[in-house]
Computed example of a mutant assay.
Amino acid sequence: MASAGPVCGPISSYSRVQILHLVQSRADRTIGELCDATGLHANTVREHLQRLIDGGYVIAQPERRTTRGRPRTLYSAATGTPGASSPVAKDKAKAAAQRGDLMRRMLPATASELGREADCQLDALIEHLEESGFEPVVDDERLTVDLSPCPHAAARPEDRPLLCQVHLSLMQGVLAEAGGPLTAECVRGEKAECTVQLGDVRGVTHGMA
């Protein structure tokens, strides 16, 4: 089995994972809240947040105040839903789709039977996973993405559930930002084995073993 590549991207730092978990579990977080919950210095939290914003995983909005005073900046997860969409993530998904469309025009056999919208979602998801240090293998009949060997296999066992939960939410956001019928339903795995199960909101039945 090939060795796992280096962990990179939004979940390369456990401190960033903690911050992502907090903004995914509740929107409109303040710097102070994130500092209190993680024990990190405010400057460190700001650095992590800026990297997550630049990557399209977090959005920042000014607080709406009804009293005088400078509004605080509130941070939320980019979920791809109305009011929580990241322009960066949209641009990344569009660029991934353009590259995917070009490939499918050159090599028509690379197109799946899922339709263009779903193929473009997979384009965005694959690029996200590759940027995060994974080597994804997509089965578009079973609607699975094999991420084995998982780069996070060496993480502390007690940290793995949070890592998987946070990354599942990130993948759900990537698919939503791309727009289409596919969703990420769950992550299954043990040790270095890891598989993402996708779903199709159209209710289409796909091939299974």
Rank of each mutant, 00 (worst) to 15 (best):
H48L: 09
I11F: 00
F134P: 01
N43W: 14
D140H: 14
A184Q: 06
H21F: 11
T144A: 03
L163D: 04
V88S: 02
Q50V: 13
L125E: 06
E113T: 12
R105W: 09
Q50H: 12
R70A: 15
G173V: 01
R142E: 13
D119C: 03
R72W: 07
L40I: 05
G133Q: 11
K92R: 14
A96G: 03
A118Q: 05
V187C: 11
M106T: 13
S25E: 10
A154C: 10
S12G: 15
K94A: 11
L20C: 03
N43L: 14
L175H: 00
S15F: 07
L40C: 08
F134C: 01
E63A: 14
A155Y: 05
R105K: 11
Q24T: 02
Q98M: 12
R188F: 04
G32S: 12
K90Q: 09
G133E: 10
V58W: 08
G199H: 04
S76I: 04
T38S: 13
P10K: 03
R99Y: 04
Q165D: 13
P10T: 05
T66Y: 12
V7F: 01
E190A: 13
L198E: 03
S3Q: 12
L107N: 09
R116D: 12
C120P: 00
D123G: 00
T44W: 00
R26T: 13
H21A: 11
P82F: 05
R65W: 03
A109H: 07
A2N: 08
P82Y: 05
V137Y: 13
E135G: 14
G9A: 05
A42S: 14
T81A: 08
T205M: 15
E193F: 15
N43H: 15
G133D: 11
N43Y: 11
S85P: 00
E193I: 10
H206C: 03
E185M: 09
C194V: 04
S12K: 11
S12F: 05
P181T: 03
L125R: 08
R72H: 11
A124I: 00
R72I: 05
L175E: 00
E141D: 13
R104A: 13
A153M: 09
G56D: 04
A155D: 15
P62E: 09
Y14W: 09
G115R: 02
V201E: 14
A192L: 12
I59A: 02
D54L: 14
G5Y: 04
T66M: 15
S13I: 01
S86A: 06
T144Y: 06
L175M: 03
I11M: 07
G180F: 06
V201Q: 13
R26L: 15
T38H: 10
T66E: 08
S86M: 04
T183P: 00
D123P: 03
L163S: 06
V17G: 09
Q18S: 06
C120S: 14
R26K: 13
I11G: 00
P157F: 06
A77W: 00
H167S: 09
A176V: 02
Q197K: 09
A154F: 09
A178Y: 00
E131C: 11
R65C: 10
V23A: 00
E193Q: 10
G133S: 15
A111K: 13
K94F: 08
A95P: 02
